[in-house]
């Protein structure tokens, strides 16, 4: 029960660019417990995006171990990774990545479709997820009828709808103004308090400060890792 959600050991990822080999990650050891709210920080080129792709099972490591929810996923084939992305991981993207032609409800249903859930259950669960992000009155709206904050909340609902072990957000406020950003961060706070495990990847200190723990990546290794001292005061202030 006390098994961590994420445990990596010596996680390495290299890319070959013609003759040269670029080592984006050079051995990351990281353990994230259930219910933690973690920010991964680092300047661009630090390898944080590569780390996020590995954690999100969109990519496989060149070397090293990665256990998600107690399952080793480093060497799994494509269709197994797809299944894990579907069941265990909820993605929130900087640019929302909603399907333009589909309503909010249909967008939230999407992971359930690939999870093989029956249409009736799908609708119900998607509606519940939208209610959790306070969008029950926007279910039939298409993305172009929604504000940026609303779109991001739809995408959070989509990430939550499968009840994943891990919510993985990549610069979730990057395309939002500061007021809306605060709303979204408050929402993350609420989800964290409700027991969700959350990882936010960002290069903004202000955003990272909402988390309980901050991991800094620099040049493909963990530069610092520790509890965030300002977290509670910052969130209570907003």
């Amino acid at each position: 029960m006390t098994e961590p959600v994420i445990r990596t050991k010596g996680l390495t990822r290299s890319f070959s660019m013609g003759q040269t080999i670029v080592r984006a990650l050079r051995g990351i050891d990281l353990t994230i417990e259930r219910g933690e709210y973690v920010a991964i920080m680092g300047p661009s080129g630090s390898g944080k995006s590569t780390l996020m792709n590995l954690i999100g099972c969109l990519d496989t490591p060149t070397e090293g171990e990665y256990e998600l929810n107690g399952t080793s996923v480093a060497k799994l084939p494509e269709h197994e990774l797809a299944r894990i992305r579907n069941k265990d991981i909820g993605f929130v993207f900087q640019s929302f990545n909603l399907l333009a032609r589909a309503t909010a409800l249909r967008n939230v249903e999407l992971p359930l479709i690939y999870g093989g859930i029956k249409p009736r259950d799908r609708k119900e669960r998607a509606a519940v997820a939208l209610r959790e992000v306070d969008l029950e009155d926007r279910m039939d709206h298409r993305p172009n009828q929604l504000s940026g904050g609303q779109m991001q909340r739809v995408s959070i609902a989509r990430a939550l709808v499968t009840r994943p072990a891990l919510l993985l957000a990549d610069e979730p406020t990057g395309n939002l103004d500061s007021t809306t950003s605060k709303e979204i961060m408050a929402l993350f706070q609420r989800l964290s308090e409700a027991g969700n495990t959350i990882i936010v990847v960002t290069h903004e200190r202000e955003i990272a400060d909402h988390a309980q723990r901050i991991v800094t990546i620099r040049d493909g290794v963990v530069a610092s890792d520790g509890p965030n001292t300002v977290a509670t005061t910052e969130t209570s202030a907003t």
């Binding site: 494509e78 299944r83 690939y114």
Partner: peptide, 9 residues
Amino acid sequence: VRKAVGARQ
């Protein structure tokens, strides 16, 4: 997006 939310090949 579809792949990220679990679509297989």
